[in-house]
């Protein structure tokens, strides 16, 4: 059994449920990616797992205990969360922002001890930010900022990392850069990673496990080769894809796609002609 699983969870915003009676488990030490169209409930599921949203029914279990029964500080030592589009307060240096990742490990007034400093230093180093350490976060590019947030999550020293669209708003090289970093953390540090991605090819290339959602329900879950199929993607996204194999990961990817209804139109037109 996995350390982290969701059982019969219903969750939504102010009374209207987005997800109802959903169960899923997140495999340990693997990269899991949730995919699905806008409004399918993938971020909602992620937020429920991260305890940002309270579940109306059911529970998220961590090490066999329901997370709403655990102290939030204890959970913060097990999982770190990177929300979507986090705005940086002005005037913070990278070191300062990353140091807040140590909050769950500190006492009330919170000075940094040697262990904290070591962890912060390591997090800054592994994300390749050492040379910027004392710069203001505002002065960084989007890709670097995302790295700072990841560094903060790493300073938290948790075995589970939860990321909501970590590559959104980044250019192609920086998207890859972030995903390679996460892959490295998974391989070298055995961290369990669960995230939402919009780019299906990235999801397939970097995940061990994929969860495809639509309308608040899980349509398919499993390895990329199981989820990245013509029919699943058609059901979930209403697009028709031309599948091929990724030369790097050997998982399925697609090189182009068409809206399903347009494809139908195309055939109809051809028949008429």
């Amino acid at each position: 059994m996995s350390n982290l699983f969701v059982e019969d969870v219903s969750v939504g915003y102010s009374g209207s449920p987005i997800i109802e009676g959903l169960s899923v488990s997140v495999p340990d030490q693997k990269i899991t990616t949730i995919i699905g169209p806008n409004g399918c409930g993938k971020s909602t599921l992620l937020k429920a797992i991260a305890r940002i949203l309270k579940t109306d029914k059911g529970a998220v279990f961590l090490d066999g205990k329901a997370i709403h029964q655990l102290s939030t500080k204890k959970i913060a030592k097990r999982m770190a969360i990177l929300p979507q589009s986090s705005e940086v307060p002005s005037g913070l240096t990278i070191f300062e922002l990353v140091s807040y990742g140590r909050f769950p490990h500190q006492g009330g007034f919170g000075g940094l001890n040697l262990e904290d400093l070591k962890q912060i230093d390591w997090a800054i180093q592994v994300t390749g930010l050492s040379e910027f350490k004392d710069r203001s976060v505002e002065a960084l590019s989007g890709g670097q900022r995302q790295r700072v947030w990841i560094a903060m999550a790493l300073a938290q020293d948790t075995d589970i990392l939860i990321l909501d669209e970590p590559t959104t708003y980044l250019d192609l090289a920086h998207q890859l850069d972030i995903l390679l970093l996460l892959e490295k953390l998974n391989i070298e540090e055995k961290r369990t990673i669960i995230m939402v991605l919009h780019d299906l090819n990235h999801a397939s290339r970097f995940s061990h496990n994929m969860i495809a959602m639509k309308g608040g329900e899980i349509i398919k879950e499993g390895s990329p080769s199981k989820v990245m199929t013509y029919s699943t993607i058609q059901t979930v996204f209403e697009i028709d894809v031309n599948l091929t194999t990724c030369p790097f990961s050997h998982n399925p990817i697609f090189h182009s796609y068409q809206l399903s209804r347009d494809t139908q139109q195309l055939f109809e037109n051809a028949n008429e002609g």
Binding site: T72, A76, A80, P83, P89, Y100, F103, P104, Q156
Partner: peptide, 23 residues
């Protein structure tokens, strides 16, 4: 003063603060 550290954490954003174990 005794909550000042918590104010710093909350000022990073509600979701970040929850993630860091802030009540």
């Amino acid at each position: 003063m005794s909550l000042s550290k918590s104010i710093t954490i909350i000022s990073l954003g509600e979701e970040i603060a929850i993630g860091l174990g802030q009540r």
